[in-house]
Amino acid sequence: MSDKAHIVFENVSLYYYTFDQGINSVKDYVLKLGFVKPFVKRKVLEQVSFEVKPGEVVGILGKNGTGKSSLLKCVAGILKSYHGKVEVEGRIAPMLAIGAGIEMELTGLENIKLITSLMGVPASREKIDEIIAFSELSIEDLKRQVKTYSTGMISRLSFSIAVSENPDILLVDEVLAVGDSGFQEKCMKRINDIKEAGSTILFVSHSPDDVRNICTRTICIDRGRIVFDGDVEAGLEVYRKQF
């Protein structure tokens, strides 16, 4: 099933277009009759090239703000303002933030139905039961609005929804930090199961142990550029030397 999972980046540069807020820039824009660009362009990824083959588990390492999350968003097809070639094949399960897409006003149960359908695979009754069982949340909890949940409970719900199906490509962005140690272990085990099933995984983490446990390869990013691509131990060494 996962043979089609394939990621190719060729010379990808990614930009953020932020609007220079504040009255001065607006005044400038109007006074110059639109001849100045309203956007400030900020480079996030620069000439990034790599290829991930089916079944590989790649740890993405780097300091905060160097473009790791943006890279995953690019793979997920959320960010499109890039130059270069991005090819991604396969069904993606994105876990890009704790509580991604969770609607606080809705109940846990309603959120399970909403998010699975937004991700393209509406959950069947059995699937919903599986998600509930994995999250270990009680039925009473799930019937309450999510805004009454603790952060740990939200991350349980969110993680359980995201990994309910075996995807071709799993994107994990530092979402394991919350949750009690029991649940963290369970999550790592589930990610390992997904790996065993042959899925491709991109794994952003700051925990050397987790990276060692699961990854078959690492990519190190520094200020938007790939500075290392290869073996896990060597990658962790490069990462450590950045500080």
């Binding site: 994105p94 890009l96 933030a97 897409g101 991700m119």
Partner: peptide, 9 residues
Amino acid sequence: GAIIKTIQI
């Protein structure tokens, strides 16, 4: 915003 940033729709 939270959905737009995390799920591709």
